[in-house]
Design a binder for these strands. Structure first.
Length: 374
RNA sequence: GGACGGGUGGGUGAGUGGCUAAAACCAGCAGACUGUAAAUCUGCCGCUCCUUGCGGGCUACGGAGGUUCGAAUCCUCCCCCGUCCA
């Protein structure tokens, strides 16, 4: 079997220490997956990502379909060959773009019609089309097309989106069964249901009945409070099979991650470390730091004195502030490197804590330190 | 010596009688960002007072006077800067 998920240990909180095996390598869970929408984690080279210890990265179906095109990527050796990343890759389906590009699309039971943000041309993405694209891209893990809605949203709207997502999950599964290769790629379903616990539970139950090899929880961190995100996550994970990986999509801030892990989440992704870096927001063991702040102009200390990353070992806050203020490309590179290191290092510590059954302590400690600004 | 053109808030630079504490951009200051339309976006950006309000007072468009109910805007003189002619 090319794919395997093992739970190696559990913690009193409900956290799981695990290992997800794919044809391109193993992912230690709980894992943070850097986002590389356009087949690149912005401002980092693949060598950088390897040095950081990233075991898997994301890419995006919708964006790569528009440019450069999935057929081109297939011909160039699939995503792994094209972007020269011989490690695991996960492709998101374009379901998030249903939410983020809501002004540029029309949705129906059949699928989503997007007007390209690049040139205005129209494109139709159905569950089947998304599968066709994702199979061509060749990522180890594929996501079904789903309908991600905003929060807050009416219950009727959340119910409709969850029902549609369920229907699309079935269609995606069937398409993959007919045209894909289970030894090469695995397909994850996505739980929807807005901010309604019962909808989340029902949707999870229905998806589990379709027997996917992994499940994601989507449509969260889209406007609701962290408490609600946790409540919805808990509602879903309670119904998901313990022996399959769970992926909480699109989260979160560093201090929130242990909460999700404690709810039994195995993988997460978020643009916060990468986008934040480009916007001058650095995450540290003492809280968030906005590097452009004048207080760092003559600060010779590293970003985080307890950080072991290559940036903190070598450069001062004063220098990073100068690079950022000057609009130098190196600012994005160094800031991104640090933030990703911080996220990935936090995950290492979380895994260690679970191994010792001490996640709760780690969580409260992290929360106390990070919930502030330097 | 003469002829034009010009001197506006930290910078560039709009504004040719009231709607102007003065556009816009830059710089500066602060914040946001959660399956990436984001190296983006938002707010503040003369001083001051308080009952913090589309609030009051003061100062401000080279300088000094003047016209006018009202002047960055019109007039007079002066001082600078640029271009050209002697």
């Amino acid at each position: 079997m090319a794919f395997r998920f093992e739970v190696l240990a559990t913690d009193p909180t409900g956290a799981r220490l695990g290992r997800l095996t794919t044809p391109h390598g193993t992912i230690d869970t709980p894992a943070f997956m850097p986002v590389g929408t356009a087949a690149t984690v912005k401002a980092q080279t693949q060598q950088d990502l390897e040095a950081l210890g990233a075991q898997i990265v994301l890419a995006n179906t919708y964006h790569l379909y528009l440019r450069p095109g999935h057929e081109l990527i297939r011909q160039m050796g699939g995503l792994h060959g094209f972007m020269s990343w011989p490690h695991p890759i996960l492709t998101d389906s374009g379901g998030y773009q249903v939410f983020s590009l809501s002004d540029l699309r029309k949705i129906s039971d059949e699928g989503v019609t997007f007007r390209s943000h690049i040139d205005g041309s129209e494109h139709f993405l159905s569950p089947e089309k998304a599968m066709e694209i994702e199979i061509a891209l060749g990522a180890d893990i594929m996501m079904v097309l789903d309908e991600c809605i905003e929060a807050p949203a009416e219950e009727s709207r959340a119910r409709a989106a969850a029902a549609r997502t369920l229907d699309w999950a079935r269609r995606s599964r069937d398409y993959f069964a007919a045209h894909g290769d289970r030894e090469r790629q695995m397909l994850f379903a996505i739980v929807q249901g807005g901010t309604y616990p019962q909808l989340r539970e029902e949707n999870a139950d229905a998806l589990v009945a379709l027997n996917f090899p992994g499940y994601a929880i989507g449509g969260l961190a889209v406007g609701e409070s962290h408490e609600l995100t946790c409540e919805m996550t808990a509602a879903a994970t309670a119904r998901l099979p313990a022996d399959k990986p769970r992926y909480l999509m699109g989260v979160g801030r560093p201090e929130q991650i242990p909460d999700y892990v404690g709810l039994g989440v195995d993988t997460m992704d978020c643009v916060l470390p990468t986008r934040g870096a480009r916007h001058g927001c650095l995450f540290t063991s003492q809280g968030q730091l906005l590097i452009r702040n004048s207080s760092f102009a003559r600060d010779q200390r590293p970003v985080d004195e307890t950080c072991g990353c290559a940036v903190c070992k070598r450069y001062s806050r004063a220098y990073l502030r100068h690079l950022y203020a000057s609009g130098e490309p190196l600012a994005a590179i160094l800031n991104t490197h640090h933030n990703l290191y911080f996220y990935l290092d936090t995950m290492r510590k979380i895994r260690e804590a679970i191994g010792f059954g001490r996640l709760e302590r780690f969580r409260s400690d992290l929360r106390a330190r990070l919930a502030r600004q330097i």
